[in-house]
Design a protein around this nucleic acid. Sequence first.
RNA 1: GCGCCUAUAGCUCAAUUGGAUAGAGCAACGGACUUCUAAUCCGUAGGUUGCAGGUUCGAUUCCUGCUAGGCGUGCCA
Length: 569
Amino acid sequence: MDAIKTEVYNILENAIRAAIMAGELSITEVPDIPFSPTKTPEHGDIATPIALGLAKQARMAPRKIAEIIVKHIDLEAHPTLHKIDIAGAGFINVHLSNEWLYDTLRTIAAMQSRYGTSDKGAGKHLQIEFVSANPTGPLNIVSGRAAAVGDTLVNLLNTIGYKAIREFYVNDAGGQVERLGESIDVRYRQALGEENLEIPEGGYQGEYLREFAATIVETEGDKCLQLEMDERIAYFRDKGIDHILAQQKASLERFGVSFDVWSSEKAIRDSGKPEEIIERFREKQYLYEAEGATWFRTTDFGDDKDCVVIRSNGEYTYFVPDAAYHRDKFDRGFTTAIDLFGPDHQGHITRLKSFVKALGMPDDWLEISIIQQVNLVDAEGKRQDMSKRSGQFYTLDTLIDELAETVGEQFAVDVARYFFLMRANNTHLDFNMELAITHATENPVFYIQYAHARCCSIFEQGSEQGITPKPIEAVSLKQLTEPMEYELIRKLAEFPAVVLLSAEAREAHRVPHYLHELSGIFHPYYNQHRVLDPSDMEKTHARLTLVQSVQTVLRNGLTLLGISAPVSM
RNA sequence: GCGCCUAUAGCUCAAUUGGAUAGAGCAACGGACUUCUAAUCCGUAGGUUGCAGGUUCGAUUCCUGCUAGGCGUGCCA
């Protein structure tokens, strides 16, 4: 599609230039020619509203302009063009010749799993940071959404030629992990029979810490009580971080997400970089002292309030290591860093961007996108609170467990990933468990997977009848004459553009929608037109080639999403 | 109070970044298995794109002001 668009662009550009030369269009220079999507085959394959855009400047009716432009195009000289129409308010609709359709099939056949790739990214290094959940509890489903989105974005970016990596920032230092240590301490002592103990303010109430404490009692008995309280809490903190981090990793692996780099906040704190950051901020006069604390002037960068970077007790707030961490990313040579934040971090966006700017990095180097909250809706349609502190959160593992009961482990992961990916990042997502479980067979992901399985089934059936697909050079593609076949190929041709757009806009949800649309053409086609027809082998082979292309695109698309492409269902 | 996000069919959401008649899936109703898998297909119905202005050839998309919901909001991360 890209090559053909360029070709059409050039043809149109030359036509406009010729019209200007002939004195028929009173405009000074050839503008950018926009293409608009064609929603129906009647509008051709490539359309442009360029005549509408020129109307004012040329002081002429759009349709008249379109006529002039089209007059300067010699269809005979361009075999790829079938015909050109002027329609509506002055749209120029370009219909391509069938040869273009066949080329699409040839391209897919030649590129196979690489169909959809491009070199737009030119090998630039990108880093996507996502999930980055505190090591204080199991991953909840918002983290699951972030994991699915981040993982897919990396796939998409790598597909269009970037070198993108997945990174997880572990907040293994600071107040929250101290509360973790204290909470484990309480559970540990409770497990040993001590009474009248309560989880401290800001601590973690979840059942998982009770279980974890029980395993400590099992392996170490009561000997931890011999430690001083401070030492004991630090011991439990470190032990807890290791344990919970391992759990989080296991959940992510189960979900099909593996990170390339795990960064540690503690390591950043210990590296001396926070001190350098503070020094630089101080030099540039961004800091001031007030109320016993050190503040950063985020208001200089458009925030509504300044923020504390060094607390009155002398400790850094997490802003400092976070700023140091982002400086570190920059120093590692990434051309762009993309952070996927949870909904509770939106206040952090302006601050972090302020730090990035204050540290002399380019404005657009850091992209931040919020993965909005996931509301778990239960059978009664009631929303459930998923805060970690409340202790009644719903974890990613629980979600997959519950789905797996009905559809099995592999499909559970597939369904969850698809549900998380099908919505735009910045919209709130209602995850209706009841619907996902009881109507599992009506899930869009099955619709797509079934389309793929059907393709496979056709080949299996064919080989039983002794029909094996021929190489595309030996196939008479002219046999593909049905409108649905035309529609199908047009859709297949869109795939690389969908991948490109999706990656550049950081909008993973476009891919699931595309695959659903493609399946929505294939299923009816399958129902209405027989592929294997022993009485017409020419047509059979042409259709097999088409089905192979559909299969390839479905598989490539599902792979991008981390969803399996089953050969049978 | 201030900031960010959201508002589109009864429900959940799309709409190729400003283009042509705003599209899918659920839910509802009526049909199709002697067929390459019925996890499918065919048909019917569903809309003042939250409200009011503005920008222009053209707005679901951009701007302003409202309304409603969610989230965030100076020493947690």
